[in-house]
């Protein structure tokens, strides 16, 4: 298994708050890695640094042999990093197919692709996510589950190698959540993406992830197999409180 992403000692602070401090991470191709931690642990900040929304204060990020620490977001996307958002952020005035077409057109430099080709491509991803019947509905009119599916379709349409999934379960009912989890697992099989899965519902990661990384107050406190993490007394203590790491 070859290494696809390597994060070396990155830190980020907002004012006086250390959101992420000195975190290192390595992901191999084809893996599903869980990233968990209580609210405000710096999970999303870490993802924002890897995808390029925030600048990294210290440390560096390597993706497939490229140093992407200072690369603009869109170029990282062209290299094959994509993400979904914790709170879905659709293009409100674009139809579902239109927003997926944006990704299909610009997610990667492709040759000989017209707008029509991109639309055909987009239908494929929409169908995969079960949104084909909603293809002509505006982004602002979709329901939460549909929005999450749309976000996944949009992210997949950029043909990523590494996909960040940010809390798919939040706000969904159990049935929908199960569907969403299965959808991501299918996407992994079909498109061969590597997944970094942010979640604070332990049960999902126990099933889906091969490896789990735990963040707490911006620091990495544990890493290992899901079973080991679940039984780690330190992690349990952090989740239940009375921990001042």
């Amino acid at each position: 298994m070859s290494e696809i992403l390597r994060v070396n000692n990155v830190s980020k602070h907002f004012g006086g708050l250390m959101a992420v401090s000195d975190v290192s991470l390595s992901i191999n191709a084809g893996e599903t890695v869980g990233l968990m931690g209580p609210n405000g642990a710096g999970k999303t900040t870490l993802v924002n640094m890897i995808t390029g929304k925030y600048d990294v204060d210290a440390g560096d990020v390597q993706f497939m042999g490229h140093d992407i620490t200072k690369m603009p977001t869109y170029q990282r996307c062209h290299l094959g990093i994509s993400r979904t958002y914790q709170i879905p952020r659709p293009f409100p005035e674009l139809t579902a197919i239109g927003s997926v077409a944006v990704s299909a057109l610009h997610g990667k430099k492709r040759q000989n692709q017209s707008f029509e080709d991109a639309l055909t491509d987009a239908t494929h991803y929409l169908e995969f996510c079960g949104l084909f019947s909603k293809r002509n509905v505006l982004g602002k009119d979709l329901t939460l589950y549909e929005l999450r599916s749309l976000e996944l379709a949009r992210a997949l349409a950029t043909t990523p190698k590494l996909l960040f999934v940010d809390e798919v379960m939040a706000g969904l009912n159990p049935g929908e959540a199960m569907k969403a989890v299965r959808l991501i697992e299918r996407a992994k099989e079909e498109f061969g993406v590597t997944i970094l899965w942010i979640e604070h519902v332990m049960a999902v990661l126990m099933k889906a992830a091969q490896r789990v990384v735990v963040l707490h107050y911006g620091k990495k406190i544990a890493e290992g197999l899901p079973q080991d993490i679940a039984n780690d007394p330190f992690v349990i203590e952090c989740y239940l409180g009375s921990c001042h790491a």
Partner: peptide, 21 residues
């Protein structure tokens, strides 16, 4: 095909950039 990227920017710049625009 430049239209969708303009409408994406119109709607949400940050997401547009994350999607490779």
């Amino acid at each position: 095909k430049f239209a969708p990227q303009m409408s994406a920017i119109n709607d949400d710049e940050e997401v547009a950039e994350a999607m490779g625009v």
